[in-house]
Amino acid sequence: MELRLDGLSVVTDGRSLVRDLSLEVGSGQVVGLVGPNGSGKSTALRCVYRALRPTSGTVLAGEEDLLRLPARHGARLVAAMTQDGSVDLDFTVEEVVALGRAPHLQGNQALSARERALCARAMDRLDIRHLARRGVLTLSGGERQRVLLARALVQEPEILVLDEPTNHLDVRHQVRLLAHLRGAGPTVLVVLHDLNLAAAACDRIGVLSEGRLVAGGTPRQVLTTDLVRDVFGVEATVVAHPLTGDPQLLYALATAPLAPAPENP
Rank of each mutant, 00 (worst) to 15 (best):
D90A: 09
H73T: 12
A256I: 00
Q155G: 01
L197G: 02
V93N: 00
G85Q: 10
V171C: 07
A256H: 07
L131E: 03
A132W: 10
M81Y: 08
R15M: 10
A179N: 13
L192P: 06
G26M: 05
D6N: 08
R15Y: 15
V239N: 12
R146F: 09
P219W: 12
L189A: 08
G135M: 03
L243S: 03
F91I: 02
A256W: 12
L67D: 09
Q155S: 03
A254Q: 14
R229W: 11
S16T: 15
T187I: 10
A75G: 07
L250T: 08
V207A: 08
G100E: 10
Q145V: 05
A102V: 13
D84I: 00
L23T: 09
T218S: 13
G216N: 08
N167H: 12
A132T: 02
A117P: 00
P262Y: 06
G217I: 11
A179E: 15
R121E: 15
A261S: 15
D203K: 12
L8C: 01
N108Q: 12
V231I: 00
L227H: 05
R212L: 00
R146I: 13
S16W: 03
D226H: 13
A252W: 09
R146M: 04
V48A: 04
R144K: 11
L21W: 09
H73R: 15
V228F: 13
T92V: 04
D65N: 15
H173R: 10
L21D: 06
S22P: 12
V96H: 13
T237W: 10
T138E: 14
